[in-house]
């Protein structure tokens, strides 16, 4: 049963990575990066490293906000 859950999370992570690579708009890329993070963090929890998972989950939005500072939408 646990294998099936891990396969689902791996699928989510791979879909997120491919979507980040393919998308062209920076905001779409950042949303897909959020999908990739969501697929990868359950693997850390499944290994039992809860302290690492807390730090990763708190650091990811900070990095995203740093990148958002240079994202500008072309006002049409």
């Amino acid at each position: 049963m646990t294998d099936l859950i891990l396969i689902i999370f791996g699928l989510i992570a791979v879909i997120g990575g491919l979507a980040t690579a393919i998308n062209k708009d920076p905001f779409d890329k950042l949303i897909s990066l959020g999908i990739l993070a969501g697929g990868a963090i359950p693997f850390i929890v499944n290994r039992g490293y809860m302290d690492v998972a807390i730090a990763v989950a708190l650091t990811v939005p900070v990095t995203t906000i740093f990148i958002l500072l240079i994202c500008r939408r072309e006002i049409t």
Binding site: A55, L58, T59, P61, V62
Partner: peptide, 9 residues
């Protein structure tokens, strides 16, 4: 709150 948690950790 965010940086308080990060610094404490």
């Amino acid at each position: 709150i965010m940086s308080l948690i990060l610094v404490m950790y």
